[in-house]
Amino acid sequence: MHEMSIALSIVEAVEERARQEGAGWVSEIELLVGKLAGIEPESLKFCFSAAAAGTLAARALLAIEEPEGVGECGECGMTFPVNFYYAECPACRSLRVKIISGEEFLIQSMTIEEEEE
């Protein structure tokens, strides 16, 4: 259940920045969670509500974008979608595949409201 400690780090980062910005509360947080990032978005949402309780982000919606995994073949250079780390190049069957996208795990942005509700 590393999603809980991750939810806490999201809340901490968001709250720190929200305070700097003088926010009353945070209404939305946009996350980028690649399909290969090793994070379960559903589990993260579940933990987030507990982690955010009593903070400026308590009522924030989590908007999660999930970029697909993309691999690049180390032999023939072809790029193709991958769902797992043990991908095989569909063109030359090589296993020397480098993941070039899908491992992202970012807090993209947040929407802050000026007034306390």
Binding site: E21, I107, S109, I112, E114
Partner: peptide
């Protein structure tokens, strides 16, 4: 934790978007 006065950009009703583009695990 500073508390800034941000009187200069007041938005009515709708919130303001702040871009972070920060790795979630950045602190670690």
């Amino acid at each position: 934790h500073h508390s800034h006065e941000h009187g200069d950009h007041h938005h009515e009703g709708s919130g303001r978007k702040v871009v972070l583009e920060q790795d979630v695990l950045q602190k670690n």
